[in-house]
C-alpha cells in the first residue's frame, strides 16, 4: 500500500489588529487586540484509502482601547491583572527555593 501525504503547516501568526469602532456618547472606542493563530492540515492519498485532517487554534487578547473624541486620541491599556499576579506567583515559586539554597550554603560555611 503506497500513500502520499500532503502536509500544510501554517506558521504561528501573531499580529495586532484593530476592531470596528464602538460609538458611545460622541466618543469612538476602537478595540486593539493581539490575534495569534495556528493552523495545520494534512491529506493522505493512498491506493486503499484517502483521508484528510486539520486543526486550528486562535487566541485573542485585548491589549488596549483607543478613545477618539473631539479632544483627540487616547490609548488606554488593558491589563490582565490576574495573569500578572499569577506570573508573580510563578516567579516567586522559582526564586524562593534558590534563595533558600543560598541560605543553606551560607549556614554550612559558617
Amino acid at each position: 500500500m503506497s500513500e502520499q501525504g500532503i502536509k500544510r503547516r501554517h506558521p504561528v501568526v501573531s499580529k495586532v489588529v484593530e476592531g470596528e469602532p464602538i460609538r458611545v456618547g460622541g466618543r469612538e472606542l476602537v478595540p486593539v487586540v493581539r490575534m495569534t493563530t495556528r493552523m495545520q492540515r494534512r491529506a493522505l492519498v493512498g491506493t486503499e484509502r484517502v483521508s484528510g485532517r486539520g486543526w486550528g487554534a486562535v487566541r485573542l487578547r485585548p491589549i488596549a482601547i483607543l478613545e477618539r473624541s473631539e479632544e483627540g486620541e487616547r490609548r488606554i491599556p488593558i491589563r490582565n491583572k490576574t495573569a500578572q499576579a499569577l506570573s508573580g506567583f510563578l516567579l516567586a515559586a522559582f526564586i524562593i527555593p534558590l534563595l533558600l539554597a543560598v541560605a543553606v550554603r551560607l549556614a554550612r560555611k559558617e
Binding site: R49, S51, W55, A57, V58, N80
Partner: peptide
C-alpha cells in the same frame, strides 16, 4: 480574552 480551536478529519 478569547481562545478557540477545533480539529476535524475525514477518511
Amino acid at each position: 480574552k478569547v481562545a478557540y480551536g477545533f480539529g476535524m478529519g475525514v477518511g
